[in-house]
Simulated scan of single mutants.
Amino acid sequence: MTTSPAPAAPAGPDLTDEQWTTLVRARATDPQAVAKAYAARTRPAPLLSQKDTLFLVAADHPARGALRSGPDPMAMADRRSLLARMVTALDNPEVDGVLGTPDVIEELLLLGALEGKVVIGSMNRGGLDGATWTMDDRFTGYDAASIATNGLEGGKMLLRIDDRDAATAGTIEACADAVTELATHGLMAMVEPLPYHREDDGSLTLLKDTPSLARAVTIASGLGTTSAYTWLKMPSCDDPETVFGATTLPCVVLGGVPSPDPAQDLDSWGRALVQATVRGLVVGRALLYPPDGDVASAVEAAAVVLRAAHAGEDAA
């Protein structure tokens, strides 16, 4: 019996041969180009856009070994395609910036795609997708010192909470330390607290019920010696009023695992975006790998939803 290969993601944008060749050559022959690119980057003046919103595209999934998007288990393994999709998304002036691990951020820097953009460095990617230790989200990427030295606007950390796994306590402590260290530098700490339930067979389920998400919000809000620079990154949910009402901290809605229906994702994000504490979107695969391959249109559709959600604030 033969197994049919998984369908590939629809063809999307691509880098030119010159862009790709120049990037790969720089990686091999000029490692100092990375430090030069960090130093030369034009930083955004305010963290928030003039509309007091923040719209980021995320690409820190591969560092955790999470390469699937939709039906294609290897979608994000094609680095040239991933970078081309990121560059296309960043070309939209309403996309404020990017969230990524050092490798992706540095490639985008070398491609000249991050001028004037917000850059948030991903800090802990040690809980590999599918590993027996997947909930052990150790810090393996940026740290607070490198984020400050390289002139980034902040750091993001994953805090998966499993009440049946004592190792969660270590992640909570590490995230608290990172929040404190980033605040010392006056930099954003973007915490992504996600509650999980472990079944007896070891499988994990993301809990999206209101009590679990609200509890996660309150845990993350109290991390570190100050919450002055803390933002929360949370999924959309059925009761956003209660979940996002559990904090005064600024929040962004994460895209999460894309559904087969992009309109359903947009509607879900829209319900969360109108909450008083919610300031924007951080979306990865749902915009970078849309079912039709049209990244530019997917990004613009998300921008429209974000604009509509905050139109009332502009008129107030």
Rank of each mutant, 00 (worst) to 15 (best):
Gly284Tyr: 09
Pro93Ala: 05
Lys156Trp: 03
Leu56Trp: 06
Thr277Trp: 03
Arg41Gln: 04
Ser4Tyr: 11
His185Arg: 03
Val217His: 09
Ile161Pro: 08
Ala113Asn: 11
Val217Tyr: 05
Gly65Ser: 12
Thr184Pro: 02
Gly97Gln: 03
Thr101Gly: 13
Cys237Ala: 05
Trp269Ile: 03
Leu109Ser: 06
Ala145Ile: 08
Gly270Gln: 13
Arg64Glu: 15
Ala272Thr: 11
Arg25Ser: 00
Thr149Cys: 05
Ala298Trp: 08
Pro235His: 05
Gly127Pro: 09
Thr210Arg: 15
Thr101Cys: 08
His61Ile: 11
Thr21Asp: 10
Arg41Ser: 03
Leu82Trp: 01
Ile120Leu: 07
Leu83His: 03
Thr88Glu: 00
Glu173Lys: 14
Met157Lys: 03
Asp91Trp: 01
Gly97Lys: 03
Val299Trp: 01
Arg85Ala: 06
Pro31Gln: 02
Asp91Cys: 00
Gly255Ser: 05
Asp17Ile: 01
Asp314Thr: 14
Val253Arg: 04
Leu187Arg: 02
Arg279Trp: 04
Val57Cys: 05
Arg215Lys: 12
Pro235Thr: 02
Leu281Cys: 01
Asp143Arg: 08
Phe244Leu: 05
Gly65Glu: 14
Leu23Ala: 07
Ser236Ile: 10
Val98Glu: 00
Ala28Asn: 03
Leu223Gln: 01
Ile105Ser: 00
Leu281Met: 03
Leu213Tyr: 13
Ala169Ser: 13
Ile219Ala: 07
Ala272Cys: 15
Met188Arg: 13
Thr218Ser: 15
Ser203Tyr: 10
Ser69Ile: 04
Thr230Tyr: 14
Ala26Tyr: 01
Gly255Phe: 03
Gly112Phe: 04
Met76Asp: 01
Ala58Gln: 02
Phe55Thr: 03
Gly312Trp: 10
Val95Leu: 09
Leu232Glu: 14
Leu15Gly: 01
Thr149Gln: 12
Ala178Thr: 08
Val24Pro: 00
Ile147Glu: 00
Thr277Cys: 04
Asp162Ser: 11
Leu152Val: 10
Leu249Asp: 11
Val118Leu: 08
Val278Gln: 01
Leu213Gly: 15
Val304Lys: 06
Thr140Tyr: 01
Pro260Asn: 09
Lys36Asn: 08
Asp60Pro: 15
Asp163Ile: 07
Cys251Met: 11
Ala63Asn: 01
Leu266Gly: 02
Val252Ala: 02
Asp72Cys: 11
Arg125Asp: 05
Leu213Lys: 15
Ala77Glu: 15
Ala189Met: 05
Ala58Ser: 12
Ala66Gln: 14
Pro62Glu: 04
Thr42Cys: 06
Ala276Phe: 08
Ala276Gln: 11
Val283Asp: 07
Val87Cys: 04
Tyr142Met: 10
Val305His: 09
Leu287Trp: 01
Leu82Ala: 02
Ala272Trp: 06
Pro7His: 03
Leu56His: 06
Gly270Leu: 04
Gly293Pro: 09
Leu23Val: 06
Ala59Ile: 13
Ala113Val: 10
Ser297Ile: 07
Pro13Asn: 03
Phe244Ser: 02
Ala298Phe: 07
Cys251Leu: 13
Thr53Met: 15
Val299Ile: 12
Ser221Tyr: 07
Asp103Gln: 05
Phe55Leu: 14
Ala309Pro: 08
